[in-house]
């Protein structure tokens, strides 16, 4: 069975999904990531899906679960690189990705994580916190 590699870069775990995943592979990734977050103590996870030509409800649910589990382990997840055609399809499918942060590319994803950690470290009196990051909902 194929396995999706998890790379550690500084305080971030980077996952780049390059294959058409079988459901088992997706579930394996979910487990691997939780293990690696605990083992490395990383506070951020970036999942690059720019190579995926579709995201169906199973993959969507896996991503949402990964984000939720990571949050429990004190790590923020950002999904980056979703293709326009995939996004349009997800909207039509009615799939919401609640609790998932998204960014256009890996670099913007890293910016987002850095900002989040910065805010967490205190001294932030910003009362519109949260409005600067897109939260996902359907019309």
């Amino acid at each position: 069975m194929d396995r999706v590699p998890v790379l550690k870069i500084g305080d971030i775990l980077l996952v780049s999904i390059q294959i058409d995943m079988e459901d088992q592979v997706a579930l394996q990734l979910q487990e691997d990531l939780a293990d690696r977050i605990v083992a490395t103590g990383c506070h951020g996870v970036i999942i690059d899906i720019s190579a995926l030509d579709i995201v169906d409800s199973f993959v969507g649910r896996t991503l949402a679960t990964i984000a939720a589990v990571s949050r429990v382990l004190d790590a923020e997840t950002v999904v980056v690189g979703m293709r326009p055609a995939v996004a349009i399809t997800l909207v039509e499918l009615g799939l919401q990705l609640p609790g998932i942060r998204t960014a256009l590319n890996v670099e913007l994803g890293m910016d987002l994580l850095a900002r989040e950690r910065g805010d967490d470290d205190g001294d932030d009196g910003d009362d519109v916190e949260g409005t600067d990051t897109p939260a996902v909902s359907t019309p």
């Binding site: 058409d20 030509d53 579709i54 169906d56 199973f58 055609a85 499918l93």
Partner: peptide
Amino acid sequence: VRQLVRTLAVAVKLSLVDQTKLVTAASE
């Protein structure tokens, strides 16, 4: 199934968005 549907969708020249929609539906 996903790969087969994509190959045929490309062959009949469905637009990229329509290919993606069809392959996603087939996967579900």
